[in-house]
Protein backbone atom coordinates (compact mmCIF):
# COMPACT_ATOMS: atom_id res chain seq x y z
CA UNK A 1 0.00 0.00 0.00
CA UNK A 2 2.82 2.38 0.95
CA UNK A 3 4.67 1.53 -2.28
CA UNK A 4 1.48 2.16 -4.30
CA UNK A 5 1.08 5.53 -2.59
CA UNK A 6 4.65 6.47 -3.41
CA UNK A 7 4.22 5.47 -7.05
CA UNK A 8 1.00 7.53 -7.17
CA UNK A 9 2.93 10.54 -5.84
CA UNK A 10 5.91 9.99 -8.19
CA UNK A 11 4.33 10.75 -11.58
CA UNK A 12 2.53 14.01 -10.62
CA UNK A 13 5.69 15.23 -8.87
CA UNK A 14 7.69 14.32 -11.98
CA UNK A 15 5.31 16.50 -14.01
CA UNK A 16 5.63 19.43 -11.60
CA UNK A 17 9.43 19.20 -11.73
CA UNK A 18 9.19 19.10 -15.54
CA UNK A 19 7.08 22.30 -15.53
CA UNK A 20 9.89 24.13 -13.71
CA UNK A 21 12.69 22.58 -15.79
CA UNK A 22 11.17 23.21 -19.24
CA UNK A 23 9.69 26.54 -18.14
CA UNK A 24 13.17 28.01 -18.44
CA UNK A 25 13.09 27.48 -22.21
CA UNK A 26 9.65 28.97 -22.92
CA UNK A 27 8.00 32.35 -22.53
CA UNK A 28 4.36 31.33 -22.14
CA UNK A 29 2.25 28.86 -20.23
CA UNK A 30 0.90 26.88 -23.19
CA UNK A 31 4.33 25.95 -24.58
CA UNK A 32 5.59 25.21 -21.08
CA UNK A 33 2.79 22.76 -20.29
CA UNK A 34 3.05 21.03 -23.69
CA UNK A 35 6.78 20.50 -23.27
CA UNK A 36 6.32 19.45 -19.64
CA UNK A 37 3.95 16.63 -20.65
CA UNK A 38 6.43 15.36 -23.25
CA UNK A 39 9.29 15.59 -20.74
CA UNK A 40 7.30 13.75 -18.06
CA UNK A 41 6.55 10.89 -20.47
CA UNK A 42 10.24 10.68 -21.40
CA UNK A 43 11.34 10.65 -17.74
CA UNK A 44 8.67 8.06 -16.85
CA UNK A 45 9.95 5.78 -19.65
CA UNK A 46 13.53 6.18 -18.40
CA UNK A 47 12.35 5.38 -14.88
CA UNK A 48 10.65 2.21 -16.14
CA UNK A 49 13.83 1.21 -17.99
CA UNK A 50 15.89 1.84 -14.86
CA UNK A 51 13.55 -0.22 -12.68
CA UNK A 52 13.52 -3.04 -15.29
CA UNK A 53 17.36 -3.03 -15.35
CA UNK A 54 17.51 -3.16 -11.57
CA UNK A 55 15.02 -6.03 -11.45
CA UNK A 56 17.00 -7.89 -14.12
CA UNK A 57 20.19 -7.33 -12.13
CA UNK A 58 18.45 -8.59 -9.01
CA UNK A 59 17.45 -11.75 -10.89
CA UNK A 60 20.97 -12.29 -12.27
CA UNK A 61 22.73 -11.64 -8.98
CA UNK A 62 20.02 -13.41 -7.06
CA UNK A 63 19.29 -10.85 -4.36
Amino acid sequence: MNLLFRIAVYVPVLFLIAVVVVGQHHDNLQDTLRSAVARTVRWAVWTAVLVACMLALALVIGW
Partner: peptide, 23 residues
Protein backbone atom coordinates in the same frame (compact mmCIF):
# COMPACT_ATOMS: atom_id res chain seq x y z
CA UNK B 1 6.34 40.30 -17.27
CA UNK B 2 5.71 36.53 -17.53
CA UNK B 3 2.73 36.23 -15.22
CA UNK B 4 1.15 33.01 -16.51
CA UNK B 5 4.43 31.10 -16.62
CA UNK B 6 5.23 32.38 -13.14
CA UNK B 7 1.88 31.13 -11.84
CA UNK B 8 2.54 27.64 -13.30
CA UNK B 9 6.06 27.45 -11.88
CA UNK B 10 4.91 28.83 -8.52
CA UNK B 11 2.08 26.32 -8.23
CA UNK B 12 4.51 23.50 -9.09
CA UNK B 13 6.87 24.48 -6.25
CA UNK B 14 4.05 25.10 -3.77
CA UNK B 15 2.32 21.78 -4.48
CA UNK B 16 5.51 19.73 -4.07
CA UNK B 17 6.39 21.56 -0.84
CA UNK B 18 2.85 21.25 0.56
CA UNK B 19 2.75 17.56 -0.36
CA UNK B 20 6.01 17.05 1.53
CA UNK B 21 4.63 18.75 4.63
CA UNK B 22 1.36 16.81 4.33
CA UNK B 23 2.84 13.31 4.10
Amino acid sequence: GQKDKGVAMGIAVLVVFALGLLV
